[in-house]
């Protein structure tokens, strides 16, 4: 084999897999979104070719009464979960940096447990913690002094409080469970970033009489900017498409008010009367949003990593 051919030969199998299993489906998704695809078009024995409907699927989803609630749920959840994860992760990262080495290792091993729990198990654990009858959350809320509970929540008795019926409380539990599972990654990454900042910078700041808040704003944050750029984008992408935990907490697709874009797309395509074209159109909207965010990530990585 001529030596110029070798890299292409090594690359070919992987590239074929990516083309067949990621790029072609991406194209097919867009194609399906312009067709009315149902089960009769997919059956093994003489399938009917799907009818081309132009932009009809898109007009249908934009006019659907599920569009705004799903988009709102997607955006609000992503905003809340990303903000809380980043803030909590940063605080824990700073804490880990200041703890002694034994204590810091102890906390890292602990947060690893939350991080390692598989998403299906995460959802099930939090479903159990927020169970209306025997959940520990209602027990803990009942511990609050009555006056405080009345002042903050307008109620004192939490026995039997159902958390997973209303969209708002479903998303509340979802936010807690997602933040719980994702802050460890942020904290450990921030810790790695903090360790890479040269000590001299802090010594110089101290000599100049800079306080802790000024030092954080003027030295730590700017030095961690590239880390944050990557972490925020990754978190947005992960939280934008959240499916497993939402599906399990909301109990499948029965509660339409609790849909986000991925659950809606799934419900259209695999629900009672599957409308795959419609589901594909929702997936295209989701993918476009994700690709815009990915673009920021790719630009950041290309700046810092050696891809040339």
């Amino acid at each position: 084999m001529p030596s110029w051919l070798i890299p292409y030969a090594l690359l070919a199998p992987g590239l074929l897999v990516i083309a067949a299993l990621l790029l072609y489906p991406l194209y097919q998704m867009v194609d399906m979104s312009f067709h009315d695809v149902r089960l009769k078009n997919l059956r093994a024995i003489n399938p009917v070719p799907p009818e081309f409907v132009g932009l009809e699927n898109y007009t249908k989803i934009f006019e659907s009464d599920l569009f705004w609630p799903s988009l709102r749920n997607t955006l609000l959840f992503a905003a809340a979960a990303v903000a809380l994860t980043i803030v909590l992760g940063t605080l824990v990262g700073l804490l880990l940096h200041r703890l002694g080495s034994k204590m810091s290792m102890f906390v890292i091993v602990g947060v690893m447990a939350a991080w390692a729990t598989p998403p299906p198990a995460q959802a099930i654990i939090w479903k159990w913690l927020f169970d209306s009858d025997a959940g520990i959350a209602n027990w803990a809320l009942n511990l609050l002094p009555d006056w405080l509970s009345n002042l903050v929540f307008g109620r004192a008795d939490w026995s039997g409080q159902p958390w997973l019926n209303e969209p708002f409380t479903i998303y509340l539990v979802l936010t807690v469970s997602v933040v719980w599972a994702s802050f460890p990654f942020i904290a450990v990454s921030i810790l790695a970033g903090l360790k890479s900042i040269p000590h001299e910078l802090y010594e110089a700041a101290e000599m100049d009489g800079s306080g802790p808040i000024t030092t954080f704003a003027k030295i730590t944050l700017p030095m961690l900017k590239p880390v944050y750029a990557v972490l925020i984008v990754l978190s947005i992408i992960w939280d934008f498409k959240v499916f497993t935990q939402l599906y399990l907490l909301a109990g499948g697709t029965a509660n339409r008010e609790a849909f986000n874009l991925s659950l809606w797309s799934y419900a259209e395509a695999f629900g009672g009367s599957p409308k795959m074209g419609l589901g594909a159109a929702v997936a295209v909207v989701l993918t476009i949003i994700l690709l815009i965010i990915t673009f920021v990530y790719v630009r950041q990585i290309v700046k810092t990593e050696d891809v040339r």
Binding site: L22, P25, L26, M29, M32, I237, K241, F243, S262, S265, Y266, A269, M276, G279, A280, A283, L286, T287, L290, L291, T294
Partner: peptide
């Protein structure tokens, strides 16, 4: 690109 988007 997540599995959720390419599912269909």
């Amino acid at each position: 690109v997540p599995a959720e988007a390419l599912l269909i």
